[in-house]
Structures are given as structure tokens and as C-alpha cells.
């Protein structure tokens, strides 16, 4: 998880990965999730975090979380076998 912790994320959603030099854009939701993942939250913790920070209606939050984690795996920002706990 060191790669994730090393990411530099600006308020505007600009992300710089000092390890690879790659840059990304994230939206507010992803920004909150990255923060939660860095703190090691499990799935329930992440869902709770989203509900606390955003006006959520009927979305499938666990599925959206897995979608983001898949992107992180694809970009090598978390180890290949990484899964959210819970």
C-alpha cells in the first residue's frame, strides 16, 4: 500500500504518482475513497465513509468501490491480488 500512500493528491483532483511519474484525475468520490483505502478501511467502513460525505440514493456502493479498486490494480497502484476486506 506504499504506492497508494505516496500519491500526491491536490484539492482539484490532480494525482501524481512519484514512483511511475504517471498523473491522473479523480472526482470527489474517488478522492474520498483513496483516502479511506490509505487508512486501511474495510468495505463497510468505505461505504459508511461515502454515506457520511455524500448524498447517496440507491447506488450500489460496494460495486462502485470494487470498480475503483479494479482501476487501481490495473494502474499498478495497489498490488495485483489486492481486495478490499469485508
Amino acid at each position: 500500500m506504499q504506492r497508494l500512500r505516496d500519491l500526491a493528491i491536490s484539492d482539484s483532483g490532480f494525482v501524481f504518482d512519484p514512483f511511475s511519474g504517471a498523473t491522473y484525475t479523480v472526482n470527489g468520490t474517488a478522492q474520498v475513497l483513496l483516502d479511506g483505502l490509505k487508512r486501511g478501511l474495510d468495505r463497510d467502513g468505505l461505504v459508511a465513509l461515502l454515506r457520511e460525505r455524500f448524498e447517496c440514493s440507491t447506488e450500489d456502493l460496494p460495486r462502485d468501490i470494487d470498480d475503483l479498486v479494479q482501476s487501481l490494480r490495473m494502474f499498478g497502484l495497489v498490488p495485483g491480488g489486492f481486495e478490499v476486506r469485508g
Binding site: 491536490s10 482539484s12 483532483g13 490532480f14 501524481f16 498523473t23 484525475t25
Partner: peptide
């Protein structure tokens, strides 16, 4: 990185 960050966001 600043100008690039602003251009890209």
C-alpha cells in the same frame, strides 16, 4: 507540476 496540474484538471 503546477501548470500541468491546472491544465489537466
Amino acid at each position: 507540476m503546477d501548470a500541468f496540474s491546472r491544465m489537466s484538471t
